[in-house]
Nucleic acid binder design. Sequence first.
DNA 1: ATATTTATTGACTCACGGTCAAAACTGACC
DNA 2: GGTCAGTTTTGACCGTGAGTCAATAAATAT
Lengths: 243, 243
Amino acid sequence: MSNPPTLRKERERAVREELILTHARRLLLSNGFQGLSLDELARSIEYSKGTIYLHFDSKEDIALAVTTEALRERSNLFERATRFQGLSRERARAIGFACCHFMVTNPDYFNIDMMMKSQSFWDRASDKQREAYLTQSGRCFRSLQQVVLAAFEAGDLPAGSLPPEQISMAMASVTVGSHIMAEIPGLKMLAGIEDPIKMVRNNQDLLLDGLQWKPLLRDHDYNATDQRIRAEIFPEATWLKPG
Amino acid sequence: MSNPPTLRKERERAVREELILTHARRLLLSNGFQGLSLDELARSIEYSKGTIYLHFDSKEDIALAVTTEALRERSNLFERATRFQGLSRERARAIGFACCHFMVTNPDYFNIDMMMKSQSFWDRASDKQREAYLTQSGRCFRSLQQVVLAAFEAGDLPAGSLPPEQISMAMASVTVGSHIMAEIPGLKMLAGIEDPIKMVRNNQDLLLDGLQWKPLLRDHDYNATDQRIRAEIFPEATWLKPG
DNA sequence: ATATTTATTGACTCACGGTCAAAACTGACC
DNA sequence: GGTCAGTTTTGACCGTGAGTCAATAAATAT
């Protein structure tokens, strides 16, 4: 039994897996799931198709892994957001900010993510990838939950109104839904949406007001908060317009 | 040139198209998009595969048509809902009710609908089907919009706060998002969601409160409203639990 | 009854996801 | 440095299934 080569092999394997995912993401984003050809992918990475199947069980498995990688990135942003120093609702806003920043940075991510949630896609992925995806979902959720609990402790949310998990879910729901609605080609026109991000954030504000999360939108200068969030946590977010 | 036979032909064509869609829906719902085989579909309808292609451009085209049929059904429910006699927020609630009723009646619809919105699927459908889909989306949206405008007229929504289209979009967003979140396998457990429908309606309530849509949740007995909605508009909705 | 147009077919192609026996490579042992 | 068991990698091959189109059947016109 030789250890050094084994370790090297593992490292090389990890590198190759990353190589596969990098190219898979590129193909997936440019041609969609249907346009992702495993023959082309094999050619891109300069390994054979068989080798790809040493890493992943199916095409769907690869797509889910790509999605999970992006989701991990999103979780990281969320965790950074929770570290914002401020009122509880400002911290919640920082998470909303993170989410929008992610959307701007990864404009095509939602398409793939939504697709993978369709039963017939989800079912064809491996347990391993499914678990990894749920782990990252959990991380996102926990970031939210942490801020919600802090809000209860600070008395910024009315005690006993709703269980905290439900509040986190509501926040996630409005965000996901807004992103989706913003992407529907025809409705954007129909509803006169000019700036999708603005809509998302707007809807988040409405929900938090509905939850009576203090301070309410009208009682605080959240534009200033946004500027602080950007300056202190997400200096790379160049999309935020002043005012 | 013969007219009578032409009319009959058109009728027969429409019947056959419906036949295709009926069977396509069955296969789609039971096996998912991947499991929908055009050979099997052809066998089901007792016509050849070529004939299917006289009606639809691609597999995606068929799937979109199935989706649109369901969406048309949903639009019908929405329009019925707008006819509820009551306060503006009660009418909005009736639409929320309709949406939940639809979800209960068509539990797998959202999967397909979400999939069709992915770029690579949408792109493979025909213009004709895309337009039909957007037409039905528009009908849903307009039902919502109608109730929102009525709310402004009645003074139940604070004037000048937000443009009505944006309010409609927010309502649609929170609903769509809640449905999606409710369906994610792992998160349901993580967040302790027991009744997905309850969550959807809850989130809708929170948003409408956030919009200051009078009367607020705490100022009105909306359980009674639900009972009336069911009795007067949706007697077939057996899922509504009393209380 | 026959010609012409229209409707329908299903065998065929081709692309692609997935497999696996064979080839290439590795490193342990003499 | 040569041999060989074990491991890794390969790419030709398979089955499936979407989409096509020349051939056929049915309907209609003459």
